[in-house]
Amino acid sequence: MKIRYMLLHAYGMGGTIRTVVNQANAMACLGHEVEIVSVVRRRDAPQFEIDPRVTLRTLADQRDRVPEDSFGRRAWRRLRGRIVPHGEFAAGYFTEGVERAVMDHVSSLRDGVLVTTRPALNLISARRGHRSVVRVAQEHLSLDAYSDGVRHDIARHYGALDAVAVLTRTNMREFRRLFPRGPVVRIPNAVHAGHARPSRQENPVVVAAGRLVAQKGFDLLIPAFARVARRHPEWRLRVFGTGPKKAALGALIEEHGVGGSVELMGRSTRLQDELADASIYALSSRFEGLPMVMIEAMTHALPVVAFDCPTGPADVLTDGTDGLLVPPGDVDGLAAALDRLIGDRDLRCRMGAAAAETAGDYAPEVVMPMWENLFEELLAGRPPGGW
């Protein structure tokens, strides 16, 4: 079958990009004709390896100059209306030219499957895609993460799509409440464990990873770990990732006097080794879709301490079995959970073994057949299973 995946920026970094590239690669390995369509291009080369059997296309090459907002763009939106709502996190990418390029490309398609991967693209597919194309929207975040305007447009327009794929059972309930007449299916992201090396629980290291942005809650994790460090000065917190909050987080580390215990590690090409060499994974996010790095950590038999934020952690973890869940934003609770695991190696080993078993539910050989079956059902004109 012919499958097209549309990403905002296939050349960038991030969990959605990596997940979609992995899906495309897996489908190409299964013998399907696969294309990735990148709406914009701001780098010379993709940051994630793309199978040579996957075609990569760009709609707006912006390597020479990233366009800024302008009076013309604002006027165009007033006069022509907009498909991409203002509250969409990536709305700033959609200048007149970019939005038009996406609409023209989507409306030109007449066959195969089109998979779009964020609300802006899902809405364009719903409103401009041809009915001869099977249109599948992927949602990588909780509905609560979106503004009222985005949720309004989802409820109004997603009914034109053939399926909406969400990551967790909680997401599925949310979307079915907002979107009761549409086919909503749950397909989690696949995690490529490979030959994951299990943690030996020997190193006094807590690992966290993600973009240095407010969503990831590292400003909550640092003060929580500062309380732990007073009781366990030999332990270290290593935070992997880059982003606009780096300076503020560095200042927070100094404010709490944990410069010798907390490190902002930047981007790593050997994150899997760093996970295997750690003893605990911490997730302090304010909201998530399905936390991929957390599940990757679990493949290395790492127990998890996580805020019970919307929506991912509780859909994966069983509190007290493979990790510890803490009320969202509860810094004291996060510190207490970290302290509990740090002080009990046997508990870490038991929870880590359970975490590795849980992570098996997200292996590609479990997840990819779900996608293949969904596409085959929709191409045959049948409603997706489970709806």
Rank of each mutant, 00 (worst) to 15 (best):
K2C: 00
A10G: 10
I17V: 15
G31P: 08
H32C: 05
D44H: 11
D44R: 15
D51L: 05
R53Q: 12
R57W: 07
Q62N: 07
R65V: 05
V66T: 15
R73Y: 07
G81R: 11
G92V: 03
G97K: 00
S107E: 15
D111T: 14
V115E: 01
I124W: 00
H130F: 03
A137F: 08
A137K: 02
S142N: 12
S142E: 05
S147H: 01
D148M: 06
G149V: 09
G149R: 04
V150F: 01
R151W: 09
I154A: 11
G159A: 01
D162C: 07
V166P: 01
R177H: 14
A190C: 09
G194W: 13
H195K: 09
P204D: 06
V207D: 04
A208S: 15
G210L: 03
K216F: 03
K216S: 11
F218W: 09
F218P: 08
I222K: 08
R227D: 09
V228N: 09
R230W: 04
R231T: 11
P233H: 04
R238I: 08
A247E: 13
V258I: 08
G259Q: 03
L264A: 01
L264F: 09
M265G: 00
L275R: 13
M294A: 12
H300D: 07
V326E: 06
A335N: 04
L341R: 04
R345N: 00
A353G: 02
P369H: 12
E372I: 14
E376A: 14
L379R: 14
P384D: 11
G385D: 08
G386Y: 04
W387Y: 15
